[in-house]
Amino acid sequence: MTLVETLPVDRTTAQWEVWTTLARVVVTDPSRLAEARRIVTETTDAVDLACSRFRPDSELSRLAGHHGRARTVSLLLAELVRAALTAARLSDGAVTPTLGTALDQLGYDRDWSRMGAPGRPVRLMVGRAPSWRDVVLDGDDRLTLPAGVVLDLGSTAKAWTADAAARRVADELGVGVLVGLGGDLATAGPGPVGGWRVLVRDQPDDPSTAVTLPAGAAIATSSTRSRRWRSGGRELHHIVDPQTCLPVEPAWRSVTVAAPDCVTANTLTTAALVLGSDAVARLRRSGMPARLVTPSREVLTLNDWPTEVAS
């Protein structure tokens, strides 16, 4: 599991498992912790019901069979699709929501908690993924999916949820808050004195560093080492190249980016894994602080990566 953890766990912090990853909420006022956890849970539940690829009762799953026709969708699903299309545009298609069929055929066709159970044989979908430009969102809530396109919003939905939950906690409770969902972490409201201290690490044997984030900042880590499975004698992972519909060849073990919001941070980290060695130039141009870990665990930092406070 990709880890971006606050330090340490205390009475201001709650953590639990959601989406087979670690959810964490930290507040500046311990008396509001239970309410903050409730808000985060409500947000994750609503997003899951809107866009889970693995729930037959999700709104996204119920769109099946309506390809080519505009459908009215909930404002929540529309926001999640809009975030995914924005990520595709900003990454020139390196991050795209149109990989649902490719992931299904690679064997990632059920919730991660059930990936150890026998599944369908892997069928490699070699070739380019459908274009994200053919997914049309008109107005606030009219969505058109072309024939053959199965959306997977996993590359942005978790980050969007972290952003949305943090904003809601800060707005409703009037506290500073940090919300972490696996490798996606967002903050909102007034921060603690000295900023938010965050430990950045992917796998337990990877190099780690602790950094300080200012209030309102976000950070995301994407990895080619987490969410790996074996099928048909092949080791596979969930970062897929839209140009080939195959898992990317790992040029980086993990990439971490700090940004004003978690969706932007996650878009840049996921795109970096897809782009491989070309990611360095792209990240430099973005101006966002970044940390890349090579397959041999060497660390490269860019754009004034946040001040190190521990290692």
Rank of each mutant, 00 (worst) to 15 (best):
T2H: 10
T6N: 12
V9Q: 14
V9L: 13
T12A: 15
T13R: 12
T13L: 11
V18S: 14
W19I: 11
T20N: 14
T21G: 10
L22N: 13
D29H: 08
R32E: 12
R32M: 14
L33A: 05
E35W: 14
R37I: 06
V40M: 03
T43A: 15
D48A: 15
S52A: 03
S58Y: 06
L60I: 00
R62A: 11
A64W: 02
G65T: 05
L75T: 12
L77P: 00
A78H: 05
E79F: 08
L80E: 01
A84K: 02
R89G: 09
S91W: 06
D92Q: 12
V95P: 01
A102V: 08
D104K: 07
P121N: 08
P121I: 02
V122H: 06
R123A: 14
S131K: 09
D134K: 01
G148T: 05
L153V: 04
W160F: 14
D163Q: 05
A165N: 06
A170C: 03
G174Y: 08
G180K: 07
D184H: 10
L185R: 11
T187D: 05
G194E: 02
G195C: 02
L199N: 11
P204C: 02
S208H: 15
A217C: 09
S226K: 10
S226R: 15
G232R: 03
E235H: 11
E235R: 13
D241R: 00
L246W: 06
V248T: 09
P250T: 00
W252T: 04
T256R: 00
A259D: 09
D261S: 05
V263Y: 01
T264A: 07
N266P: 06
T267W: 04
T267H: 05
T270V: 11
A271R: 07
L273C: 00
L275C: 10
G276L: 04
R282S: 12
L283G: 02
T294C: 00
P295L: 00
N303K: 04
P306T: 02
P306A: 00
